[in-house]
């Protein structure tokens, strides 16, 4: 019933694990640009082979990789069929190969980057924007507040669903969602009050 929040990060010590999160995201973006610029079926096959080599290198189990690809599977089948029908095999390989290559490379990024490493990189990257009113410390606090709030909100969702079911109203969206939203807002105000009580606040 309750979905589990398991990060796809896999500890390791390869070069890809050691590159800092910010520059690594930059490399991924650059790879994305390269796949767009280079056209043709053979380069697409090359990119896909390269991305799959990365999967092997950082030792992502095949089962995990396939599971992560599942949401894309239907689209891949449909688009391959469509492109073959409309423009032939080379175009289909080019489109689907590039798509999969970048997607797999992004999976490798997630598998080799701790969540907090990337969030820290975002907070650091926001430093220069202090001048225009961005407060990086507040952003960092927002990240940890949000991640910390998920279990609580999930409990609220489950309890309100059970309550609606107990009243025989599990098919009534209002009976499910109104209490969930109201309790979530109350939870947020409680969190705000708790932050104030700890001296974190400027209003």
């Amino acid at each position: 019933m309750s979905p589990e929040l398991i990060s796809a990060y896999r500890p390791g010590s390869t070069l890809l694990h050691r590159i800092p999160a910010g520059p690594k995201l930059g490399l991924l973006a650059a790879y994305g640009v390269v796949t767009v610029v280079a056209t043709g079926p053979w380069t697409a096959i090359g990119f896909l082979a390269f991305s799959l080599a990365l999967v092997v290198w950082v030792r992502i189990p095949w089962r995990t990789a396939v599971r992560a690809l599942r949401p894309l599977l239907l689209v891949v089948v449909l688009v391959t069929a469509f492109q073959v029908w409309q423009r032939g095999w080379p175009a289909a390989i080019h489109v689907v190969g590039d798509l999969l290559a970048l997607f797999v490379a992004a999976l490798v990024f997630t598998a080799t980057t701790r969540i907090d490493a990337l969030l820290d990189a975002i907070v650091r990257g926001l430093g220069p924007f202090r001048r225009v009113g961005v407060d990086p410390e507040k952003v960092a606090l927002a990240f940890s507040l949000m991640i910390g709030a998920i279990p609580g909100v999930m409990t609220i969702a489950r309890e309100t669903r059970d309550a609606a079911k107990a009243r025989g109203l599990e098919r009534d969206p209002r009976a499910l969602l109104v209490p969930m939203a109201i309790r979530t807002v109350a939870h947020a105000y409680d969190t705000g009050a708790a932050l104030h009580a700890r001296g974190i606040g400027d209003d």
Binding site: D135, E137, A142, M146, A188, Y189, H196, D202, D203
Partner: peptide, 27 residues
């Protein structure tokens, strides 16, 4: 700790707002 950068100016996003934003992101 969060107010040091704002020199007495009212923050654009108050602590209560921050809690609301974070909780709705979780929602």
């Amino acid at each position: 700790m969060t107010s040091t950068t704002r020199k007495g100016r009212r923050a654009a996003v108050s602590t209560t707002d921050l809690a609301l934003i974070a909780t709705f992101a979780a929602l």
